[in-house]
Design a protein around this nucleic acid. Structure first.
Lengths: 189, 189
DNA sequence: CCTACTATATATCTTCGTGATATATAACTC
DNA sequence: GAGTTATATATCACGAAGATATATAGTAGG
């Protein structure tokens, strides 16, 4: 049987409410995309194996014209499996490949201005993401105040904010250093 | 030909000095492991294709007893290729899957104490990593003061420090919230 | 003295995850 | 009525991670 973390991400989504594969993709995108992603290449095969393991059940809703909706619901066994996994120790994140940092590490090979451009582009992304996470926090507080999940969801949003803010600070610090290098030596190459 | 970012990470390492595949793995581990990783499964095939593209040359040093060392050196064409890639825009990092956060997101399904344990374990890892990065910064400043790469290397180390510190802060903030939840409701389940 | 572990060194295989693509239809816009 | 967007399922190719195989030499411990 397919043993992957995707399994638990999907079980977790179905623990909130029954959904189709398409819904799962969209929900993940809209709720936990800043620390988790799933592609159809995983979702559909995993759903198939979850049915085989009787952790979810599948019902087909005849689509009015649209393709049929295959809606999956968590079974009691599924919920037990999810809880067992939640209780286990979490494996720590592996290194996140960062291309911008790789370029900066070899930065001496090119002009300082090139490195400045990389950091500026990275900074812009962090700024946009931080704005987005702040908007999500606001919306969560407004619409889910009585949802028992809300405190946990807010914690994960704060995680995203904290990282983006730290990276913004790093960008500013780094740009200051790079600009000093331009002034000190003139732009080499 | 194999088109992958590993190619440029390897070219970059060889731009510092000629190395064997084994050396490359070790050097990456010791210098950029907090934002980049390579496995032998990538290194050896990529080295083969780099030779075919004449971006590196291979010389075999007869090992005194030990297996022969296949040492790869960057060619002028290789250095040009590296610089061209460094000048291109960097693709932004994709989502880093974080299992601890996934568990926390579904935290309502289990006891608060379980969530506290996850955050505490995560916090300990951040603490250890931050210490490590501080030690690396110290060592870099001591031993590479006159190396022209040093300013860039220090910037990437600062990146690691900044993230770890932000995550430590997030852990503390989150643990405070979780402890309040325990007190407020009693440990459910 | 022999065993086990560690370091050096190259190479391959399996499995997982991502992104792209194929297929199909309804609704909406121009 | 043509083109775009949203809904919806499904599969494939390729990159990347981790484990394993193979080989040798030095060192530490019983």
């Amino acid at each position: 049987m397919r043993e992957t973390k995707s399994k638990y991400a999907i079980l977790g989504m179905l623990s909130i409410e029954p959904m189709s594969g398409y819904d799962i993709k969209k929900e993940i995108q809209e709720s936990i995309s800043y620390f988790w992603a799933e592609s159809y290449g995983q979702i559909y095969p995993v759903l198939k194996s979850l049915v085989a393991e009787k952790l979810v059940t599948k019902t087909v809703q005849k689509g009015a014209g649209k393709p049929d909706r295959h809606v999956y619901s968590l079974t009691e066994r599924g919920r037990k499996e999810l809880r067992a996994w939640l209780a286990e120790g979490a494996s720590m994140p592996k290194v996140e490949r960062n291309e911008m940092l790789l370029k900066l590490f070899f930065g001496e090979e090119v002009a300082v201005s090139v490195n400045i451009r990389h950091v500026e582009e990275f900074r812009e992304l962090q700024r946009v993401l931080l704005e987005k996470y702040k908007a999500i926090e606001k919306e969560l507080k407004a619409t889910c105040a009585d949802n028992p999940n809300a405190p946990y969801w807010l914690m994960t949003v704060r995680y995203g904010q904290q990282i983006r803010q730290a990276l913004l600070d790093w960008c500013d610090e780094t740009l200051t250093k790079l600009n000093k290098m331009v002034k000190a030596a003139g732009d080499k190459h």
